[in-house]
Computed example of a mutant assay.
Amino acid sequence: MKEWMNVLENEEQFYELTQENKTTVFVFSAEWCPDCVYIKPFLPELIEKYSQFIFVYVDRDAYIDLCIDHEIMGIPSFVVYKQGKEIGRFVSKLRKTKEQIDDFLSSMLEK
């Protein structure tokens, strides 16, 4: 999954990216997560479709404190920031379909 998007390198970078003028989608995930593996085949298509967004892979295991601070209790989860404000989140422990993720990202176009 991380081969198609930027990979978070440190917590400082996370907070810098939240300030971007451009919409930034943080994708919280882990290599061992079956639901994350499930979205892997169709995620590149969605990343291409929403190329106006910056997509950033956040390894849940490497950034567990960041996940706790942002109440990321299940993965994969999507948290969206623009100009220092969280404008949307699709966070749950349930498996996410392509249509659900597409609908969520589409709703972020209007914000």
Rank of each mutant, 00 (worst) to 15 (best):
Leu8His: 07
Phe53Lys: 07
Val80Phe: 00
Val56Ser: 09
Thr18Glu: 01
Ile87Pro: 12
Glu31Asp: 15
Trp32Arg: 05
Phe78Asn: 03
Cys33Ile: 00
Ser51Met: 09
Phe104Arg: 07
Tyr15Phe: 13
Gln19Phe: 03
Phe42Met: 10
Ser92Tyr: 13
Ile72Ser: 07
Ser29Leu: 04
Tyr15Leu: 04
Tyr38Arg: 12
Ser77Leu: 10
Ser106Glu: 15
Trp4Asp: 14
Asn10Val: 06
Gln83Arg: 06
Asp59Ser: 13
Cys67Lys: 00
Cys67Glu: 01
Asn10Leu: 00
Asp65Gln: 04
Leu17Gln: 04
Asn6Ser: 14
Gly74Tyr: 01
Met108Arg: 07
Pro76His: 11
Gln83Pro: 01
Ile54Lys: 15
Ala62Val: 01
Ala30Gln: 07
Lys82Pro: 00
Glu48Arg: 14
Phe28Gly: 02
Lys22Phe: 01
Leu105Met: 05
Glu12Gly: 07
Val79His: 00
Val80Tyr: 03
Lys111His: 13
Phe26Ile: 00
Phe14Ala: 11
Gly84Arg: 03
Glu11Ile: 02
Asp103Lys: 06
Asn10Pro: 08
Glu11Leu: 01
Tyr15Asp: 08
Met108Leu: 12
Ala30Lys: 02
Phe55His: 11
Ile87Met: 10
Lys22Ile: 08
Lys85Gln: 11
Lys40Arg: 13
Arg60Thr: 07
Tyr63Ile: 05
His70Glu: 09
Lys82Cys: 04
Glu48His: 14
Val27Asp: 12
Leu43Tyr: 11
Ile39Trp: 03
Glu9His: 03
Lys82Gly: 06
Val37Pro: 00
Asp103Leu: 10
Lys98Ile: 03
Lys93Ser: 15
Glu16Arg: 12
Tyr15Gln: 09
Ile101Asn: 07
Leu109Gly: 09
Val79Gly: 00
Arg89Asn: 14
Glu12Asp: 13
Ala62Cys: 07
Tyr50Glu: 12
Cys33Thr: 01
Phe104Cys: 05
Pro41Cys: 04
Leu8Gln: 08
Trp4Asn: 15
Glu110Cys: 04
Glu48Gln: 15
Met5Pro: 08
Lys49Val: 08
Ile87Gln: 01
Ser29Met: 13
Asp69Ala: 13
Val27Tyr: 08
Ile54Gly: 02
Lys93Ile: 13
Val91Thr: 15
Tyr57Ser: 02
Gly74Asn: 11
Phe53Ala: 10
Asp59Phe: 05
Leu109Glu: 15
Leu17Thr: 12
Ile64Asn: 04
Ile101Pro: 06
Val91Ile: 14
Leu46Val: 06
Thr24His: 06
Thr18Tyr: 06
